[in-house]
């Protein structure tokens, strides 16, 4: 796993996009303090998932409000699934693992 940024770059309950090897990864900071990481681009029409609203379970794409499970990446509204990544907090750093 490697450091891709600091936790305080992400406000609670929101997501931010991070560039990792030319790939965009959306990292979400849930209101319970934990992180989730998914591909940044919505598989439906390319929407920016990091701009989506979240809760402890799901993220909603801001363009058409499709929903995905943040932990499994499974679509909750009949779209292709998302790639999800292992992600951890180490001190104040965001550690990203593999898909």
């Amino acid at each position: 796993m490697r450091v891709i940024g600091r936790v305080d770059e992400i406000p609670p309950g929101e997501g931010r996009a991070f560039a990792v090897d030319g790939q965009m990864i959306a990292v979400f900071r849930l209101r319970d303090g934990s992180l989730r990481a998914t591909q940044a681009v919505c598989p439906h029409k390319g929407g920016p998932l990091a701009d989506g609203q979240i809760d402890l379970k799901q993220v909603l794409c801001p363009l058409h409000l499709n929903a995905w499970d943040l932990t499994t990446g499974c679509s909750l509204s009949g779209q292709p699934d998302l790639t999800v990544y292992d992600v951890l907090i180490d001190d104040d750093k965001i550690l990203l693992g593999d898909a």
Binding site: D8, E9, I10, P11, E14, G15, R16, A17, F18, A19, G22, M24, A26, A40, V41, G46, P48, L49, A50, D51
Partner: peptide, 16 residues
């Protein structure tokens, strides 16, 4: 208003 309020969320330009 928040950290990264206006940070891009799309790979329009590759971030460094």
């Amino acid at each position: 208003a928040t950290p990264g309020q206006f940070r891009t969320s799309l790979p329009l330009t590759v971030l460094t």
